[in-house]
């Protein structure tokens, strides 16, 4: 039973965090939607379509963030065999894939009216599409083996190898000519923030909402995985008498 010692402690922590992450999610979502759709001004060039930014940009940030979290968890799992790290990576994958799908579709919906094209094969858009395939590949691998541990190992390896795509996505707009414009928010470096303050409120509120959404769904996902794992051992104990 010592195998469950860690998950049990983890469950206590997760259950303590969950109500808070739900509260942060609901509050910042409300602020983000009201500011994003109503209170923030239209852009001087792009008019009302700039409102797409308040879902597109935070979703894209989260797509990269969740993948990085998944890669870190996979590293911890591969090296230290920590069972909760495996569950965290498994629970993160669908959330990251969802954010990537949102990033790609809202990007198309923004690109058509502003650029004149739903899709172009420039370095930014292509590397983002590869990220979606990495998420889907992770989920497929994690569930492909009868031996669960082998699935975990193979998927963790893919998550680590695929991480090289993250800096490529991030810097694609600086390294190569792309139709996609460079980053507007650069916490480090000399370029700073190229977005007016009135538009930063909904942008950061939505970013916080999406982060809280990730924390919430991931914790629920881990709780689910722990319950399923316990049920599997119990069934096994039943069969073995």
């Amino acid at each position: 039973m010592h195998r469950f010692a860690n998950p049990t402690r983890f469950l206590r922590i997760a259950n303590a965090i969950l109500p808070w992450s739900v509260a942060v999610m609901v509050l910042s979502l409300a602020v983000g939607l009201v500011h994003g759709l109503v209170l923030s001004p239209p852009d001087y060039q792009q008019g009302e379509t700039v409102r797409i930014m308040y879902v597109h940009v935070p979703a894209s940030w989260m797509a990269l963030f969740v993948y990085t979290a998944m890669a870190v968890a996979s590293f911890v799992y591969l090296v230290w065999k920590h069972p909760v790290a495996d569950l965290a990576a498994r629970a993160s994958a669908p959330v990251g894939a969802a954010f990537t799908v949102i990033s790609l579709t809202t990007g198309a919906l923004w690109g058509k009216p502003m650029w004149g094209a739903w899709w172009v094969w420039d370095a930014r858009l292509t590397s983002m599409l590869i990220l979606l395939f990495l998420y889907l590949g992770y989920m497929a691998l994690a569930g492909a083996f009868d031996d669960r541990q082998r699935g975990s190992k193979a998927a963790a390896l893919l998550a680590l190898v695929g991480w090289v795509n993250i800096p490529i996505i991030k810097f694609s707009v600086d390294w190569w000519n792309t139709l996609h414009q460079p980053a507007s928010v650069n916490p480090v470096g000399d370029s700073g923030i190229a977005i007016d303050g009135s538009m930063l409120v909904p942008l950061f509120a939505m970013a916080l909402a999406f982060k809280a959404y990730y924390v919430t769904t991931m914790l629920m996902g881990i709780r689910r995985e722990i319950a399923a794992a316990k049920a599997r051992t119990l069934r096994l104990a039943e069969v073995q008498g």
Binding site: P42, T49, R51, I52, P94, T106, M220, G221, R223
Partner: peptide, 30 residues
């Protein structure tokens, strides 16, 4: 939305459907 209603509202709609759907599926599974 300044004539861009289709693009802006579908962006928010897609986001709501994807995030809401995943949330419900994770919750029901749990």
């Amino acid at each position: 939305m300044g004539g861009y209603a289709g693009f802006v509202w579908s962006s928010y709609g897609v986001t709501a459907v994807v995030l809401g759907g995943l949330f419900v599926s994770v919750w029901l599974g749990l």
